[in-house]
Structures are given as structure tokens and as C-alpha cells.
Design a protein around this nucleic acid. Sequence first.
RNA 1: CGGGGCGUAGCUCAGCCUGGUAGAGCACCGGCUUCGGGAGCCGGGGGUCGCAGGUUCAAAUCCUGUCGCCCCGACCA
Length: 569
Amino acid sequence: MRMTRYFLPTLREDPSEAEIISHKLLLRGGFIRKVASGIYNFLPIGFRSLKKIENIVRTEMDRAGALEILMPMVQPAELWMETGRWQAYGKELLRFKDRKEHDFCLGPTHEEIITDLVRKEVRSYRDLPLILYQIAPKFRDEIRPRFGLMRAREFIMKDAYSFDADEEGLEKSYKLMYETYQRIFKNCGLKFQAVEAHTGAIGGDVSHEFMVLAETGEDTLAICEACGYASNVELTPAILGEKYQEEPKKPLEKVYTPGVRSAKDVADYLGLPLPKITKTLIYIVEEKEPIAVVLRGDHEANEVKLEKLLGGRPFRMAREDEILNLIGAHPGFLGPKGLKMKVIADKALESYPNFVIGANEDEYHYLNANLGDTFTPDIIADIRKAAPGDLCPKCKKPLSFTKGIEVGHIFKLGTKYSSAMKATFLDKNGKEKPFIMGCYGIGVSRVLAATVEQNHDEKGIIFPWQIAPFQIALISLEKALNEEGERLYQRLLARYEVLFDDRDERPGVKFKDMDLVGIPLQIILGKNYQEKGELEIKVRKTGERIYAKPENLEETLEKIKERLLNENF
RNA sequence: CGGGGCGUAGCUCAGCCUGGUAGAGCACCGGCUUCGGGAGCCGGGGGUCGCAGGUUCAAAUCCUGUCGCCCCGACCA
């Protein structure tokens, strides 16, 4: 592509609306433009990258035997009523009426549509297993869209659905998709990690998330380098690595602690280490029942674990005025002793001698509290987030923690949708059975954003070779070399996707633009060529410059390409 | 839905407090020079100051309403 013929509006400055790196760089590089909050145009170069990702996904899905289809974005309410999700799905589901006053919604996902399709057309176990997928826009009316493509309202998703005759079949389909996802993200040239994940609203027992590793990720992953265990910390069982030193129980002692509210303040004020302090959190379950959760000061509550413990009943943190009403003390001075509500203590408090608790009286704490003596919790359970120092639940080696961006999620659905929608087939014995389903998603447009989050520097994006919009940027610096550049461009097109900067611009502008959009290799035609007859190849990622005689160009490029693909350096 | 911030040229922003009829840099158009890391000089085009009311002789500026965008609202007792 010649740049004089291309539509690539780059921005010199960061747009004021963008906060995170991928959002800034995708806007500045002319990949996307905002249409409305959480809704974007993909410009030519952005769409090219998106298609690269799509094609990798498509290739691997097809290889796995999945069949590509296309389902509508507009969906009738009737199907959603069958599964009860017309009510259950919140405001994220954008609903509207057509001219005949019939209810419709924009599809945030397609379980209902696909289940309807399959129940109408598939009758026999002989037609199973069946995996169908599509790559299509989805719409979720997020409460707070943000971070550009990372949390958009309209976005591109690959969603696949498997239909099997029995659990073993589902197991196979799930495993097949797991392996397919591994290939997809590997082929995208991304550093990623599959982790055990919590199933959320969709239900089912097992699920895995695929996480692109990046500092800026919103999820925390617990990884065991020894045995390969990996999970989202939402799910990671917290196994304390430290052994508490035995010490004799000391008598409970009330101390004056004016004005200290956070556990950290209390620790500093009393001159004790943070873990010696405990904090007591008040939750309101189902808008009526208050409960207290007691944790070590350096630990954080894990609301996913709490939700499981409460059997899925809805809960929220209590407001300050509610706490004041219930306990008569302000947050910061709460403790489990003498509370008239259910008390849940975290496991890490077991056999922990002489810790500090709030006195349920403003400006006072107790020293030397002991589980069982000072108070007896109704439940002792693992309700905290795993943290550095904790051990792997499988092999008991220390866990390490890292950040990731969720780009894929695979679930076993079982018969949740097929039962609700009476989607059945006849098995070998002529018996009617609901399909056993799985669903498998990849946020295609989010992969683009995650790629940028993982691969950038102060100059701009650094695309992995596999999903770069172009692989080679050809930069001609001298007018006198225009013909030479044209010839080289034609020659390179035989093997590569090339963006040829044939603009009448100053060198600095050309370098800045190419660095910004992140094309892996730049071939510079300038004074080096004029003086020595050598072409200069700049590797975007490392900044190194490699020189090649024109006759050796392809050979050299292939070597660098191989290195980029294999070493992932 | 609450709390905060912002809407002025294509982009980044100044001007608003203290009303007097709109600016800078970049981008764009023309010219000359320049040409290996976002050039310099000269000349030019471009804005109903988000929108709607109100106050006033006069509103980008003050008041009210409205729309849009961004951030915070699970870092925690």
C-alpha cells in the first residue's frame, strides 16, 4: 500500500479522552475513531489488524472442525423469555421495539439463537458432536464503557457453541477448544496464560480464561511455576505459607486508638506489624441480614468466595450509616467480639495468637484477641484473595502472581439452555435427551487492545509479526530514490504486506509515523543506500539496524522474520 | 444511579474569576528555503465558543436547564 493512497490519520498528541496506552496508541495510530461512548470505527489499518486476528481464529476453529455461521445481531424477545434471561439479564441488554411494537434486543451473546437453530434442525445423536461459531459484533450496554476497545459496548467477538450427546462428548469438545485456544493465542504471537476461572452468571462447574499477560491487566493470576497450576485469584484457594510462631495467650486488653481507621493506621499507631491487626467487614445479605467478615489486616476479601459461601444469595457492603446503626461504632473500630450477627472468620486467623480487633466502640481496639476465646466465629472459611507468600493448592510450592487481560473464556454449559428451550435429540436407544452444550468466546477486538498493552514502547506500538497490519514499512527518504523505491516496493509485494511511505515528508515524520503504528520491520532507503548500496533494515522491537545488499534482501528478511516468529525476543 | 471534571478551529489547549463581540501551537492551502528522527520564514482558509433559554445596551465569559464526553464510586473499615 502506498501511503499517498492510504487513509492513515495519525495524531501527534494524545487525545484527551484516552487514559490507557492501548486506547491512546490506537487512536493516535489511526486504527480507530470514536463514534459514541464505547462505539468505534475501525479505520483501514485497524481493520487490517482486526482481520489478521480474525483469520487466525478462523483458521484454527476450522482446523478443529468447527463450522462458521453468522447469526443476527437483532434478536426477538421470545427466545430470551424461554430461558428467563429477558428478566434476568440487566440493563446490559439493550431492548427496543420494532414498528409493530414487538420486543427485540441487540445480542450480547447468542446462546438463545443458536439453541433455537439447533433444536429445529438437529434430531439425532448421529449429527453430534457439532461445533458452530461466528465472528460478529456484539452489543452490551455496559454501565461504564471505558479504555477504548478494552471495554467497549459494541465489539467484535468470536463465539462458538458445542453440542454433544453426553458428558464425555462435552469433555472432548471442551478439551478440543482449550487446545484450539492455545494455538490461536500462540499464533497471534502473544504471551498468554490459560487459568482456571469462576463461571459467573453462566453457571457450570469448570471454566478457563485465556489471559494476555500485561502489567496493565485488570485481573490478577496466581501461577505455580513448579507444577503449572494457574488460576484467576478470584478462584485461587488461599493457603497460608507462613507458620505462626507459638506464643502464650495473653489477656485481652482494651487500648485507646484515637483517629486511626485503616488497619495500616492501627498497625502504625500500635507499633505492630500489619498482619497482627484484623479488620472486620460488614456485608448486607439480601438487603436484610448483616454479616461480619473478619480478615487479617494485610489480606483482602474475596467476594467470589463469599458469594459461594452464601449460596449465591446477593450481598453488598454495608454503608457507614447502616454500620453505625447496627453496631454503634464507625468503620475502623469494628471487631467480632460481641457482635449480634453471623461472623465469618478467614482461615488465616486459625491458631493465630494475640491479634488486634476493633472494640466496636469509637477510638478503641483490643489487643491479644484469640480465636475461640475472645470470640467464636459461626464459620471459619477461606474467604480471602490469595496473596504473595501463599502456596500452590496442588503442589504446595509458593505461588507467583501476575496481571492479565481476559481475551478468551471457555465454559461447559451442560443442559442449562437446551433444557430451558427443549432442545433435544434422540440417542442410540431412541430416547429423547437435551443437548450437552459448551460455549467458547474470544474478544477479537479486545485482543487488538491487549496486544498493544503488551507490546509497546514510548514511541508506539510494536506488533507481533503475525497480526501486524503490514509486515514491512518501506521508507524512501530521497526524491532521487523514488524510482528505486517503487521498484523495491513492487519486488517486496511478492512476499510481504508492505506499507510504502512515498509521501513528500521529512524523514522525521516518516520515522515517527512508522514507529507509532508498529510495523515490525522498516526498510530505509536513504543515504546509506546512496553511499554504500546497502539497504537498512530496522527491527522495530529491538531498534537494531541490519544492512543488506539488495540482492540479499529477501534472504535477510526471511532470517529476521524467523527470528521474530521463533524467539519472541 | 451517585460524586468530580471537561465541552472554545481537524488535534492539544489558553481566554471565563473581573462581560465589550475569539486566540496560540500543531494540522490544512499557496510560496521560498530546508531534508536521517514530528523544520524555518512569508502569506492564507477555517470556529453559530456543545445545545436551549434567561440576565444585560452588550454573553465564550454571569444564571438556569439540557445533551455529550472523561475520571472516581470493589483498594476497603
